[in-house]
């Protein structure tokens, strides 16, 4: 395994940051459907790309979570975005390539990418 000493060093650095993430800081949740249907349609690369894109942009108050089958398996991979105090937005047929636009336009600038949503395509 990669050296645990390296991991201990990261811990030492992290522990000094007062700003340990707390759930009450979170105002946006990105939820990816990861049941058999979602996984078969390619949900995993989509989820991993959300995590990478958030990290790339240094966004910390957003969590990425998984859920089971959302119920419309033919529209998978599906992603639901919950922004605090706003209506849920459901994206369908997601791909890793679409992730950057969802993060940039919706998460950062507050304007959902209409053309990827279930309303536009479903």
């Amino acid at each position: 395994m990669k050296s645990l000493a390296e991991l201990a060093a990261i811990r030492a650095r992290m522990i000094e940051q007062v700003n340990l993430r707390k759930d009450d800081n979170v105002d946006t949740r990105i939820v990816v459907g990861m049941a058999t249907c979602g996984i078969a349609a390619g949900a995993r690369p989509v989820m991993l790309e959300f995590i990478e894109e958030l990290k790339r942009r240094g966004i910390e108050n957003v969590t990425v979570a998984q859920t089971g089958c959302i119920g419309m398996c033919r529209l998978e991979p599906m992603v639901e975005v919950y922004v605090k105090d706003q209506e849920k937005v459901t994206y369908i047929h997601m791909t890793p390539e679409k992730v950057a636009r969802v993060v940039g336009e919706h998460i950062v600038n507050g304007k959902p990418v209409d053309e990827f949503t279930i309303g536009a395509q479903g």
Partner: peptide
């Protein structure tokens, strides 16, 4: 799930 730990 801390970002630095998960990156490692």
């Amino acid at each position: 799930d801390n970002p630095e730990i998960s990156a490692w």
